[in-house]
Simulated scan of single mutants.
Amino acid sequence: MDYSRRRFLTAAGAGIAALSGCSAPEGDAEFHGEQPFADLYEAVSPSVVRLRVYDDRGPLGEGSGWLFDDGVLVTNAHVVTDADTVRAQFANGDWAEAEILGSDPYSDLAALSVDPPVDADPLPLLDEQPAVGTRVAVVGAPLGLAGSLTSGVVSGVNRTISSIQNFTISGAVQTDAAVNPGNSGGPLLTLDGDVAGVVTQAGAENVGFAISAALTERVIPELVERGSYEHSYLGVRIRPVTPLLAAANGLDEARGVYVSAVPEGSPADGALQGGSGSVTVEGSPQPTGGDVIVALDGTRIDTTGQLGTYLALETSPGDTVAVTVRREGERRTVGVTLGTRPEPQ
């Protein structure tokens, strides 16, 4: 974003901090004027679009998108699934036909090529996970109402969600800003004008989710260049370690990721060990005998979400990772060369 579109927000933030005799919070310092969301909307709205999607029989639906790079729009994969034609409406009312460059169902991200107006600048991605409580806004076209803004805070981070197409996405950002049909693919923005995530769905009232900026930064350039994205694949079936599962397997704490099965021929076949039995704890059958993953490459892994996030953001197919497990009461580390996640069936 150019300086002219940021400077009034910088000045507003500096002024309010000086008047109060304190510093503005880090990450929210530029946008503390009397109308921070109005200022934000004025700055970013030329870069946010309403999308209409068609196949050869007529309209399929609507969504939102935003300018990631010169001539490149980001939206959700589920917005453009089965599309033959995609049209983008910019804030000035102009419509432009957009070409799908690539789409990735596993991250629910898609990249489109478009000829934007001269006043539409790419929006920068936030370079770290936002803190819970960070003020944010969703800009897009809920219910087809172009040029809409809703506001709230980041109400959770590192969430593991199920996408509209029923694929697991790790590291998602949770917000209480209103998210409705049509917001899909639009930006979740901090008051600095940085994209904290790509809105993907509403979970319930006052609970919405966005694909993290970090995953977006990895996936979109590959979609632009190659039309697809290859995800790392460990090749195991997993489940969280609950207190009952920990008791069944003689673990002293309920943390880590339990390997319930290792399919034959998967990347982990021969390296990791799946469950082999079952015992009943407090009336509940619990699997036994499987490895419990507690670290990858020395990074502590406590949950299935942390496992998914590490694989998504820190590895690529072909990498060999050091997997530390608890097996038969002992801690050991084995190497697994990651594969490529198979195409969805």
Rank of each mutant, 00 (worst) to 15 (best):
M1N: 06
D2C: 08
Y3C: 03
R6H: 10
F8Y: 13
L9S: 14
T10G: 11
A12I: 04
A18G: 07
L19S: 11
L19P: 04
S23E: 14
S23M: 12
G27F: 04
G27P: 04
A29N: 09
D39L: 08
Y41C: 00
E42I: 03
V44R: 01
P46Q: 08
V48E: 01
L51Y: 01
L51K: 05
P59W: 11
P59H: 07
L67M: 11
D69N: 13
D69I: 04
D69F: 03
D70A: 13
V80R: 06
T81K: 14
T81R: 15
D82V: 07
V86F: 07
V86G: 01
R87E: 12
F90E: 00
F90K: 02
W95K: 07
E97A: 10
L101Q: 10
G102C: 06
G102E: 01
P105T: 08
V114N: 06
D115K: 12
P116F: 02
P122G: 06
D127R: 09
D127A: 14
E128R: 15
P130C: 02
V132F: 05
G133I: 11
R135T: 01
V138R: 00
A146E: 13
L149H: 03
S155R: 01
R159Y: 04
I161T: 00
S162H: 06
T168L: 14
S170E: 09
A172G: 09
Q174K: 12
Q174M: 07
D176C: 05
N180D: 13
N183F: 04
G186V: 07
L188R: 03
L191T: 01
D192R: 13
V198S: 03
V199S: 00
Q201K: 13
A210L: 02
I211G: 03
R218H: 10
R218S: 04
R218Q: 12
P221D: 07
P221V: 10
V224C: 04
E225T: 14
E225P: 05
Y229F: 15
Y229M: 09
H231F: 04
S232M: 09
G235S: 08
I238Y: 10
V257C: 11
S260V: 14
A261P: 05
D269V: 03
A271V: 08
A271K: 08
L272I: 04
L272C: 05
S276C: 06
S276V: 13
G277E: 08
S278I: 05
T280P: 04
V281G: 01
G289M: 09
G290L: 02
D291F: 02
V292A: 02
A295E: 11
T299M: 10
Y310Q: 09
L311E: 00
E314Q: 15
T315D: 11
S316K: 15
S316E: 14
T320W: 06
T324H: 03
V325Q: 01
R327S: 06
E328Q: 14
G335Q: 15
V336N: 07
T337N: 11
T337I: 12
L338D: 00
G339M: 09
P342Y: 12
Q345K: 12
